[in-house]
């Protein structure tokens, strides 16, 4: 699975599942006795496919699962991990909750802001990084920590984080 999203210039009005994910879509639906249950899995597949969730992707999910569009929209916006706007290639999600904060998360975040020249929720001009404060990642013993795509990085400090950014092209 590649998780580096591509930022589309403009989302088309109507989307279809690419051939490559059709089997995965069918597999996800088959896990539940009720189609509707597959809404999160399908939103995930859509987000992986298009890098974010353009409205047309939510419509596609609704169509696939025979749901009404507003329901899917309500679900997608309830959760924080669905990107309703395009994001950068690397989505830096820095935990700011108490344990991490006690261990220096705020300082680390400030450092990232300075270094990347962007604030919370913003994307660098080159589309490489999006920076976001998030709540507890369940890695409190390794605070401060951040998640980039699927990967967890723990026990961070300025030097470590700089090295990580270096590696993320």
């Amino acid at each position: 699975m590649s998780h580096a999203p591509v930022m589309p210039v403009e989302a088309p009005a109507v989307l279809e599942w690419p051939e490559a994910v059709k089997a995965e879509v069918a597999e996800a639906i088959s896990h539940y006795p009720v189609k509707r249950s597959a809404v999160l899995p399908l939103l995930w597949i859509a987000q992986r496919t298009w890098g974010w969730l353009p409205p047309a992707a939510m419509q596609l999910v609704a169509r696939t699962l025979e749901l009404n569009e507003p329901e899917v929209f309500g679900v997608a916006t309830f959760y924080t991990m669905f990107n309703l706007q395009p994001v950068g290639r690397h989505h830096l999600q820095v935990c700011m909750t108490l344990s991490c904060s006690l261990m220096g998360a705020d300082r680390l975040f400030k450092h990232l802001e300075h270094k990347l020249g962007i604030g919370h929720g913003e994307t660098t001009a080159d589309g490489r990084f999006t920076l976001r404060r998030v709540e507890c990642l369940a890695a409190c013993g390794g605070g401060p920590c951040m998640q980039v795509g699927l990967d967890y990085y723990e026990d961070l400090d300025e030097t470590k984080v700089d090295a990580i950014l270096e590696k993320l092209k």
Partner: peptide, 23 residues
């Protein structure tokens, strides 16, 4: 099902799909 809640918590807002005219 033309209406839905968007977001959550204190930001919960009732609206339509992507704020389109109600279908």
């Amino acid at each position: 099902d033309a209406l839905t809640a968007h977001q959550r918590g204190a930001h919960t807002e009732i609206s339509s799909f992507n704020r389109q005219p109600l279908d």
